[in-house]
Design a protein around this nucleic acid. Sequence first.
DNA 1: ATTATAATAGTAATAGTTCCTATTACTGAT
DNA 2: ATCAGTAATAGGAACTATTACTATTATAAT
Lengths: 136, 136
Amino acid sequence: MSEVRRNTRQRQVILRAVRELGCHPTAEQVYDRVRSELPRTSLSTVYRNLGVLADQGLLSTVAGAGKEVHYDHNREEHCHIRCSLCGRICDVDIFPSDMEGFPPEDLSGFILQEVSINLVGICPACSGKMEKEKTV
Amino acid sequence: MSEVRRNTRQRQVILRAVRELGCHPTAEQVYDRVRSELPRTSLSTVYRNLGVLADQGLLSTVAGAGKEVHYDHNREEHCHIRCSLCGRICDVDIFPSDMEGFPPEDLSGFILQEVSINLVGICPACSGKMEKEKTV
DNA sequence: ATTATAATAGTAATAGTTCCTATTACTGAT
DNA sequence: ATCAGTAATAGGAACTATTACTATTATAAT
């Protein structure tokens, strides 16, 4: 019986990268960051460890409508809003557990595991850009 | 000025396929269904038309955590629950517009465009299977 | 019927992610 | 401190869902 989880340098750096990058980085962004510290790290190592860290509950994944998966180090209950133009993801303070009558009783026989509330909108940076373009 | 939208046989059949398949099919599932009626239809035609139909507001897309996009013909306000084991998606009667204090005021400067509430759980079929395995 | 061009079939290309394999380096035991 | 066992790594190939490209077809307006 093994079940030994080795605490490798790469895994440490990858977790730290997600925490330091802060705003829900993608695997690629984590990869770039990690390589500035450990230049020989491979992309597959990043993916594998993001998976391991998520398994361990140290990270969670944020699957937006975009094709890339984002990673979140914030383990407190919260929700996200994603910019439909640039794909950036930000935290929003909504707490499903505070909502009355939610989640509902009737779930067509499903056993509920988790709730994710995702908003979509236009971020300040992108709406700023749009304003500028209008005036040109 | 063109802007002519041709009403092709393929597009009709694709829309009908999504409606008849009912439970949030993927592009591949639509493709299979369409080909049983129009065997020469190409996958790219299916993708293009699902996009067009979504643009026209006749369909919407359901992006779960799974990698495939699902398509939904139900244009009424509702939410989804996805099975974490088999990926199946079902409708749930939750109406965000009925929720008190939702959406919240503070959206970090985002201009809100849409709200999607997605639940994750285990569907009846999969939980049934799990029960069976235990007793073996 | 003719014409202009939107849409198609078929295929190549892309992107994000996962898988594979020889090698490396933790960890626990000696 | 050395060693053995094996989890994890680097690097690259493979995979999968989707998009892009292009010559050809078929629709809608005249």
